[in-house]
Design a protein around this nucleic acid. Structure first.
Lengths: 225, 225
DNA sequence: CCCCGGCCTCAAGAACGCGTAAAAGCCGGG
DNA sequence: CCCGGCTTTTACGCGTTCTTGAGGCCGGGG
């Protein structure tokens, strides 16, 4: 059975999640602050963590760091609509996805399933990522579309590679810029816009309405399979 | 029994790996710094090495170079999440795979099995690679075209051999330069242009439009069969 | 309602990397 | 010592890629 650790200081949210998750067959653990969350995580080894950023004791980002110190358990962040810089920090610290409060239960459940599925896939270590319209082969560094190879420049490939290694996961602008252009260019978000436009022209069926290379405004980009 | 050398300066990581690997039937050796790692490797001839990049005495890349000086033992590198350039250096220096800390034990075990399997396959490996216009015989170091032998200089052969051992795969300029000219010449990409032009004149039907020795601008070269 | 921030698109010059040729340097054998 | 084969170096034209700036669009907040 899949186990979930829910961390939030608002009892009604914890209760709602416990009810919904249990009903769907998840094993639910809970914590109301960062400190006990870390303890429960070590004890219970959950398969996924749902973490509210606004905890009473520890900053959410530090909780993420504490978990990432010893594990790669997927973390889904909950946060209020306003603190958007906190969300980006959380992603950079190693969170896998985020959901804005107030949230629909269906959305959260979908992201939870995706996070768990992704984690299983990653541990298998498959070097080929496939979408409905194109295929990324990480081992030989090729992209094919309709059986037919698409040429990517080094910069384009750098972006595709990072996203394809984190399918479904939201990757922050900072991380992309840092890994492709280096630490000196972490603020050149215009580069990303230009290159994502280029990639969509090459890879998407309808570049104006991308289905796989998704922008999350203010946050980063996501590769949907 | 398969033997593994674990090199890391963090005792808790070494301990965790020792326990998990022993339980799965591996013979485990350990070292806490680069110098003793090289010693133990020489003594114990492990089948695979797990190497942390952040060692106290020697830079991880130099440890890789030290091992590669006399052996082709597969090396799996461990490293912290942030330094992505270190990753590239490590792979270029001859590491076989790369796992970011923190890592899941399952993932590491999978990569370990893969590394050992690849190594066995390579040692058994098929010594002849064939294309539509020429044949590379890796066992006797000869190339034939129309039944009729083509003479290659030592440098030319070095390039052909690396590419032929990785058919279809993109091989980086750095890796080619490193393996053929040595670590001091990893930036002399002009050498590659000169030699690839030469090889194409000797091997391709139409040297101006190569079908097998393919340039991927800015990235490297690829051998297409 | 307007303003503003973030995003998409387009285009043009600069910078870069590639292929090619040919000269110069190196080295061992005759 | 001279010669031939191999490697290294230099030079240049050319196409591609990267960078940068400007303009337009959209949605949220004041």
């Amino acid at each position: 059975m899949t186990s979930v650790l829910v961390v939030d200081d608002e009892p009604q949210i914890v209760r709602a999640l416990r009810i919904n998750l249990s009903a769907r067959g998840y094993d639910v653990m809970t914590a109301y602050d960062g400190k006990s969350a870390l303890g429960v995580a070590v004890e219970g080894k959950p398969d996924v963590v749902v973490l509210d950023l606004g905890l009473p004791d520890i900053d959410g980002v530090d909780v993420i760091a504490g978990l990432r110190g010893w594990s790669t358990i997927p973390i889904i962040v909950l946060s209020a609509r306003t603190d958007s810089s906190a969300k980006v920090e959380a992603l950079d610290a190693g969170a896998d996805d985020y959901v804005t409060k107030p949230f629909g239960m269906d959305e959260l459940l979908a992201r939870l399933r995706a996070a768990v599925r992704r984690n299983l896939a990653r541990e298998a270590g498959d070097p080929v990522v496939e979408t409905s319209s194109f295929v990324v082969d990480l081992a030989v560094k090729k992209v094919r579309r309709d059986g037919h190879e698409v040429h990517l420049t080094p910069t384009e490939w750098g972006l595709v590679e990072i996203l394809a290694r984190n399918p479904g996961r939201l990757v922050s602008q900072k991380q992309l810029l840092q890994e492709v252009w280096g630490p000196m260019h972490v603020n050149e978000s215009q580069y990303l816009r230009v290159y994502f436009a280029q990639l969509r022209r090459k890879l998407e069926d309808d570049p104006a309405h991308p289905r796989h290379l998704i922008t999350e405004p203010g946050m980063g980009y996501r590769f949907e399979m």
